[in-house]
């Protein structure tokens, strides 16, 4: 494989207090691929995802051991956390647009980085909304509150907001679990079009979704990565019995 490695974790352990939530995770995530994490609830896949842009820093009592390399640099040492988060964006499970206008939501990140030029911001807002397939729906109401959008639109707005930062990686934590099937389909389409430009890592509870959109899939169980392979292999011919059991719906 000549694909560049974006994230490389080495012997990553994570503890919530005394409870070990991640056990010695070793994983290489390739650039401009869609990587899906699947597994039953509480298996550590979201926790692992949140390690990648250090969102776990916000939680008290979390200790992390081992290394996470982002472009071969240690994210817990060599890279400033603010810089890391501008390069590794995140979309959350529940759409969380800020209670401001649609325009302000997109412009928020760039403005925080110090972008002030109005025309530059205008173009950026438009580009991001176009890329997130939301422009046509909201172009007449950019100054209205984002809270007036539907759930699916709000989630695409959150994706647009993340794209506006032009990150290298987009982390998605069950981005469609709060949405109806039509909105879900739109977001999945969006993801396939985004993978040309971005590395996407997605946590999902829907195995069909993982099958449809991802290039690689990792199966998590009890804080361990049981299997990590090309998606078609995971779904048709898994190496591990537990992966097969989970995928065929025998537990989970």
């Amino acid at each position: 494989m000549d694909k560049k490695i974006k994230f490389n974790t080495k012997n990553l352990d994570l503890f919530y207090g005394d409870f070990q939530a991640l056990k010695s995770i070793n994983m290489e995530i390739g650039e401009k691929e869609v990587t899906a994490f699947i597994g039953p609830s509480g298996c550590g896949k979201s926790t692992f995802l949140r390690c990648l842009n250090r969102m776990n820093d916000l939680i008290d009592g979390v200790t992390i051991k081992g290394e996470i390399l982002f472009d071969e640099k240690d994210i817990n040492g060599d890279i400033d956390v603010i810089n890391l988060r501008t390069r590794v964006g995140m979309v959350f499970q529940k759409p969380n647009p800020f209670p401001m206008s649609i325009y302000e939501n997109i412009a928020y990140g760039p403005k925080c980085q110090g972008m002030k030029d109005k025309t530059q911001l205008d173009t950026l807002v438009k580009e991001s909304l176009v890329k997130a397939a939301l422009w046509e729906e909201v172009k007449d109401r950019l100054n209205k509150s984002a809270l007036g959008l539907s759930g699916g639109q709000q989630q695409r707005l959150c994706i647009a907001r993340t794209i506006a930062m032009n990150p290298e990686v987009i982390l998605m934590d069950e981005p469609t679990s709060a949405l109806d099937p039509i909105a879900t389909a739109k977001i999945e389409d969006l993801m396939s079009s985004l993978k040309k430009d971005f590395t996407i890592i997605i946590v999902t509870h829907s195995m069909q979704q993982a099958g449809r959109i991802s290039d690689k899939t990792a199966f998590f169980l009890m804080g361990e990565v049981i299997e990590f392979n090309e998606t078609p292999i995971i779904f048709t011919n898994p190496n591990d019995k537990r992966t097969e059991d989970y995928i065929t719906g025998r537990f989970g």
Binding site: I82, T86, M90, F92, Y108, G109, T162, M165
Partner: peptide, 15 residues
């Protein structure tokens, strides 16, 4: 104020 707003903002690289 929901934690989600803080997370969303921090995830965009805001201080």
């Amino acid at each position: 104020v929901p934690m989600a707003f803080r997370e969303g903002s921090l995830a965009l690289g805001a201080t």
